[in-house]
């Protein structure tokens, strides 16, 4: 628990799983969950480097901004997904081509 590379390895596992969800899932909400996993792993890296690199809190600020971005991104993404569902009656990302028709 006191080694930097433990945290980095956990973050890389989370990143790989998120990437797997993004490239293999068909459902747009599941793709969004994969993106959230990737953002979490990036945050874990920021905080780990902040903790083992002198604890000067710049990493905390970056992680805070990433969380703000994630909230905005989730809201807009879900609005787009609901719009897609109203137009196509499905949220398969392979079928979606247009937001409006």
């Amino acid at each position: 628990m006191d080694q930097l590379h433990n945290y980095l390895l956990i973050a890389s596992v989370l990143f790989s799983l998120g990437l797997f969800a993004v490239i293999t899932r068909r459902n747009a909400v599941a793709v969004l969950m994969g993106v959230e996993l990737i953002l979490n792993s990036a945050n874990l890296n920021f905080l780990a480097f902040s903790r083992f690199g002198g604890m000067n809190f710049n990493g905390h600020i970056f992680a805070l901004f990433v969380i703000i971005m994630a909230a905005a991104e989730a809201a807009v993404a879900l609005a787009i997904i609901i719009n897609l569902y109203n137009n196509y009656q499905s949220i398969n990302v392979d079928e979606a081509g247009q937001l409006k028709r």
Partner: peptide, 18 residues
């Protein structure tokens, strides 16, 4: 607060609505 209380509720809404 933000992930569990906010984003996850949004995702659940997304699943329910679609």
């Amino acid at each position: 607060m933000i992930y569990v209380g906010g984003i996850l509720v949004l995702i659940l809404f997304g699943i329910m609505l679609t």
